[in-house]
């Protein structure tokens, strides 16, 4: 795949559990992300639902991208260069919100993923005198 053997690529900083969407990923993922970008349009979303394989043909997805889409395999889509800002549009078609995506990617149940978010729960509010009576 593009660029992965280059010296610069070998020096990339690794961040655990995190894909840094850089030029290599942007090249690898272009077709998949272009397809997802098209889903801003409702007629395109309907066309995808009506014929997923035909729609993926139109955007020349790679075999790895097609397989990940067929399997609803979010980590596979990311590995094939998908960017979450565009994948979110596909997720919407599939009826998945970002908690569903989080559960799918971390291997947690949806309930456990939501509980993990809530483990950070807090509300801290400060209001200065000038605007105090508004709060």
């Amino acid at each position: 795949m593009s660029g992965q053997a280059s010296p610069a690529a070998q020096e990339k900083r690794a961040i655990p559990g995190t894909i840094v969407f850089d030029g290599d990923a942007a090249q690898d993922g272009y077709a998949l992300n272009a397809m997802c970008y098209s889903f801003n349009s409702e007629p395109n979303r309907k066309a995808f639902v009506a014929d997923e394989e035909g729609y993926m043909d139109r955007f020349n997805l790679t075999e790895a991208q097609r397989q990940a889409v067929r399997n609803r395999d979010v980590l596979g889509m990311l590995a094939a260069g998908g960017n979450v800002y565009y994948l979110a549009k596909l997720a919407g078609i599939l009826g998945l919100n970002v908690q569903d995506l989080g559960a799918l990617q971390t291997g947690m149940t949806l309930e456990d993923f939501k509980a993990a978010l809530l483990s950070h729960a807090m509300t801290e509010t400060h209001v200065a005198d000038r605007l105090g009576e508004a709060a």
Binding site: P16, G17, I19, L75, L78, V84, A88, Q105, H120
Partner: peptide, 9 residues
Amino acid sequence: LEGERAGHI
């Protein structure tokens, strides 16, 4: 939102 670390706060 993405990856094995999804949900990081």
